[in-house]
Design a protein around this nucleic acid. Structure first.
Lengths: 351, 351
DNA sequence: TTGAAAGCGCTAACAC
DNA sequence: GTGTTAGCGCTTTCAA
């Protein structure tokens, strides 16, 4: 009837004819204990298929060797999947498990997710915050003193270690590269969480990483003395496609479009393709975030690549350090870099 | 110094001037207890920021309201990300948390992952098994009677509920569709875990879902009386690309290539693009598994789409049912379907 | 209506 | 070198 309860330390103790304490010592290999006993206990434990109850251990020790990961849910933006994998892998290396929740870019959901994590006694939390400003659920008191590492974006307070990427610098670099390639009419398609539809006037941007990208693009435009058209869009395929139409149909149609994430890139690909335009010839494009498909397309899409795996790995390392006592928050910024492939046309000096 | 310990039930009891039992009753709202006491205790608890320790509750109750998810790590195959999200979401709906590990298609790793899950007292496990035949770590005894639901592929035993997709039928359908479109020389690129390099002779296929796809393709070829070229490849971009070259350069070059997953599709896209061939015109392609980018490309890639979210959701539902007592294993097969876009050329009768 | 006490499985200080 | 015991935080009989 498959309802075998697992053996506990009591069962092992009874079967081996020793006390629980002896079993514990034999299995953990500490304290004074005869080699003979150790061997005996171990073989009995093995025979019983004994497996320590991590819950009981955690309860006793006051720590669970588990870290909580709260991400926004955006799987398509080529961040979650790679970041999560690297976080799980690094955590494993350091002997930690990972409990995952996602917030769907919603602070209320994030709040509950963090609550859940804490009630599960995670030793620390890695968080992709849904909002820069709303963090009343992240006070030391609410956190019970548990450390938090913020990734991908920043908060407007500096209480936590943050691990982000240098998107502003990279965005500027990308624009300058376009300038060098002869582009003077630049289009920008920016996904902004929380807005509906799309707009040409810059809305409030709730996320620092997006703001950085915008700032970097603007800086590049200014430096290159180029003309620019901007559209800020809801992160939704159909709407982004309309936004692209608008961009392409603007009076001074851009010869190149910069997109703030992969979803926007996909919208560009779709609309441009439907219009029979060829990427890297009739129209150029540069996007934030690399992906296997952006690399496999021909021409390959020139992207601003962020070191996602490194980011995840460092976040875990920092968090574990904090768990183990180191408490001063750091601000770690990893460089993003331009990966040049074939999606930016070399324009002759004319036109 | 941010080392506030969280309030325990004892703290609440002390602050409210009642016993722990009363606090427990007040908070859980059971047993005989005066409304007055309830209100008082609740407000005190709130004031202290009391949050029940899920570990202690779990230990007491003998269940953790947590399910373990062990997947292969293949993020790029457009399965893990969507399946995981739907599993987490559905689990949340049913009041369960999800602990995630990945096996990297390695049974040894899978074994450890399952061990970890069990030692963390998960109430049940959802598993994408790395091997059809190696499941000695999944005996009722080893599992301590905990239920397991297998997804995406099957085992060669029927001890567990499985949730898979009807890949054979869909694969055949896809081939017949190609036949109707006038294709008579068909190429197949199959990713096979565990092999090195690529080969034309069918290797041992350790995964039932891949085997199903091959069977379905073969069935289609037979039914359509078409000619076919096969290449079985390691799931690695560079190698898959060589495999595509081989396919394209074979004596009877296929006019269409069927790929068993997204990685293979990407390899086709790359090589075909580099040769200056146009998808849906010079060469056709159909792939297993849909993705945002396959839909956004122009022409869109015709794919065999599997109901991944539904699969994840059903897996959780079944597992929770099993956790709650229902023990007879089921074999659930969800239909996969052909999503026709523009990547298959309509060939005239000639040639 | 409330409190006292036992016990989930484990570890470690303290005896012996 | 090994056993006894207390206690992590919680729920739930059983008594009062």
């Amino acid at each position: 009837m498959a309802t075998n309860k697992n053996a506990t330390i009591n069962d092992v103790a009874a079967a081996a004819g020793v006390s629980r304490a002896t079993v514990s010592r034999a299995l953990a290999g500490y304290g004074r204990i005869s080699k003979q006993t150790v061997d005996h206990v171990r073989s009995v434990a093995e025979g019983l298929g004994y497996r320590p109850n991590a819950l009981a251990v955690a309860m006793r020790a006051g720590k669970t060797k588990t870290i909580g990961l709260v991400v926004i849910s955006d799987f398509t933006n080529a961040f979650f999947d790679r970041a999560t994998k690297s976080i799980i892998d690094r955590a494993k290396e350091l002997g930690f498990r990972v409990l995952i929740q996602h917030s769907d870019e919603d602070v209320a959901v994030e709040r509950v997710a963090v609550e859940t994590m804490l009630s599960n006694q995670v030793d620390g939390i890695i968080l992709v915050p849904a909002s820069t400003t709303k963090h009343s659920h992240l006070t030391p008191k609410k956190l019970g003193g548990k450390p938090v590492v913020i990734i991908d974006r920043m908060l407007d307070i500096q209480r936590f270690t943050t691990v982000t990427t240098g998107d502003e610098v990279a965005a500027k670099e990308a624009v300058l590269y376009a300038g060098e390639s002869g582009h003077t009419n630049l289009g920008f398609l920016i996904a902004v969480p929380g807005i509906r539809g799309f707009t040409s006037t810059q809305p409030e941007i709730p996320i620092t990483s997006v703001q950085e990208r915008v700032d970097g693009f603007e800086l590049g435009v200014k430096t290159a003395k180029a003309k620019s058209v901007w559209v800020y869009s809801e992160d939704k395929q159909a709407i982004a496609e309309s936004a692209v139409e608008k961009l392409l149909d603007s009076p001074k149609a851009p010869t190149i479009i910069f997109t703030s994430n992969n979803d926007m890139l996909l919208a560009v690909l779709k609309v441009v393709g439907e219009r029979g335009l060829t990427i890297g010839k009739d129209i150029s494009v540069v996007s934030f975030d690399d992906s296997p498909w952006a690399a496999a397309m021909v021409p390959g899409i020139t992207v601003i690549s962020r070191p996602v795996e490194e980011l995840g790995s460092i976040a875990v390392t920092e968090l574990v350090e904090a768990i183990e006592g180191n408490t001063k928050p750091k601000e770690i910024v990893l460089p993003a870099s331009l990966v040049i492939r074939g999606s930016v046309a070399k324009l002759t000096k004319s036109k």
